[in-house]
Amino acid sequence: MHNTIALPSGIGITVSWFPMVMPEMYNRLDPTDSTSVWDFNSYVPDVVVINLFQNDSWIVTDPNNEQFINRFGEQAPTDTTIIQAYKDFVGSIRGQYPHAAIICALGNMDATKSGSAWPGYVQSAVHQLNDPDIYTCFFPYKNTGGHPKVNEQRQMASQLIEFIEANINW
């Protein structure tokens, strides 16, 4: 049996629907308590899956959003800034888990819609990291409203399992 850890989505890397972003809280046991820090040596995964940027993709286009204003003021982040933030976050995960395979994923919501810049941001960051054990896996755009339903979650899970079996050398 192999160990896998998935970092939660529903939060952004550059901006979220609430004041904190994942780089500020991923290492916490309790996200509201900065002193409750996870011991990364207590569980060492073989694979880490990062599925983030969906929330960023919405908020960076809404200059009236309170968190946009709090993070960026009046100016949206540049492509370079977005890519660097993703690269920095993935690099911090690599620092905690130097031997794990890291899969940089994008879920099946509109961040993966045809014409979306977000897969390119992820690919650029991964390319710049130049690490053969960091992969990208983008789920096909679901083209239905709302968050993924159970059957859509199952489809993504199956695709992720197939991706891991085809690409990760245990």
Rank of each mutant, 00 (worst) to 15 (best):
I5W: 13
I5P: 07
S16M: 06
S16F: 00
F18Y: 14
P19A: 07
P19W: 11
M20V: 06
V21G: 06
M22L: 14
M22V: 03
E24Y: 04
E24G: 11
M25N: 07
M25S: 07
N27S: 11
L29C: 14
D30A: 10
T32D: 13
D33R: 07
S34R: 15
S36L: 08
S36I: 07
V37H: 10
W38E: 10
F40M: 11
V44C: 05
D46A: 10
V47F: 07
V47G: 06
V48R: 02
V48P: 06
V49N: 05
I50G: 09
I50V: 08
I50M: 07
N51F: 04
Q54P: 08
D56K: 00
S57D: 03
S57K: 01
I59H: 01
I59K: 03
D62C: 04
N64V: 01
N64I: 05
Q67E: 11
F68R: 02
I69Q: 14
R71S: 13
A76P: 09
A76T: 10
I82H: 00
Q84H: 12
A85H: 01
D88Y: 06
F89Y: 12
V90K: 03
I93M: 08
I93Q: 04
G95E: 03
Q96E: 11
P98I: 02
H99D: 15
H99T: 15
A100V: 04
A101L: 04
A101H: 10
I102Q: 09
N108V: 02
N108W: 03
D110M: 02
T112M: 00
T112L: 01
K113R: 14
K113E: 10
S114W: 00
P119C: 01
Y121H: 15
V122I: 06
S124I: 01
Q128M: 10
Q128L: 12
L129V: 04
N130K: 11
N130A: 14
D133W: 03
C137A: 13
N143R: 01
H147L: 08
K149S: 13
N151R: 08
E152D: 10
M156P: 00
A157H: 05
S158H: 13
Q159K: 09
L160C: 07
I161P: 08
I161W: 13
E165Y: 11
N167A: 03
N169A: 10
